[in-house]
Each structure stands twice: as structure tokens, then as C-alpha cells.
């Protein structure tokens, strides 16, 4: 139901390196799942509106009033890499 090549493409979109064994296993599991979800194709849903929210609450918004955010120590408390109040990553060359 799904080719290994496609699993590789999806894994790349999701930024998930898969080992070769994982690729095999995922291809099989996803194949099973896709077969299962293809069940939905039996149903004619022409003209049926989609439901995103089970309970609709339209027009929820807030006023444009500023609040102070996190302190610098809180911003970087959980961060794996920082320098001089910046988050850092290996240089991205454009």
C-alpha cells in the first residue's frame, strides 16, 4: 500500500531519520494502517461539510494589551544551546 521510497520522503518531511530496519518496519506498519484507513473510501461523502471542531466557539479573541513575557533565565532554562541571549545552531549557509 505504500512504497519504501514514499516512506523515505515522508520521513524526510517529518525530519525523522529512519534506520534501514525502521524503514522496513514502518513501510509494513504504515501499509497496514493505510489499508485500514482506506475503509473511508467506501463512504460517499459528497456535499458533507468537514468538522474541525466538535464544539464550535466562534470569534474568540483578546484585547491588544501587552504583558511582560519570560525573563531571560526562563527563556533559556530549557534550551540546549545559547550564547549572548541568542539561541544558537550550527551555521546555516544560505
Amino acid at each position: 500500500m505504500i512504497e519504501k521510497k514514499e516512506v523515505q520522503h515522508i520521513a524526510n518531511l517529518a525530519r525523522l531519520r529512519l534506520s534501514e530496519e525502521e524503514e522496513e518496519a514502518m513501510t509494513q506498519h504504515l501499509g497496514q494502517m493505510i489499508t485500514y484507513i482506506n475503509k473511508l473510501k467506501e463512504l460517499d461523502t459528497t456535499g458533507v461539510p468537514p468538522t474541525v471542531h466538535a464544539v464550535e466557539m466562534p470569534n474568540v479573541w483578546r484585547e491588544d494589551t501587552p504583558c511582560s513575557g519570560l525573563s531571560s533565565s526562563e527563556v533559556f532554562q530549557n534550551s540546549p544551546a545559547m550564547q549572548d541571549n541568542f539561541f544558537t545552531v550550527p551555521k546555516v549557509v544560505k
Binding site: R62, T65, P66, C67, G69, L70, S72, V75, F76, D84, N85, F86, F87
Partner: peptide, 19 residues
Amino acid sequence: SCSTTFGSPPNSQVCSICL
């Protein structure tokens, strides 16, 4: 509700939501 003022020190207008 973080402020949008331009030119503040780096990462000083950040909260849990926009982080």
C-alpha cells in the same frame, strides 16, 4: 501578549506561547 516594539535586546520579547 508580548510587545511588538522594534529594536529591543535579543529574546527579551518572548513568552511561553511565542516560544
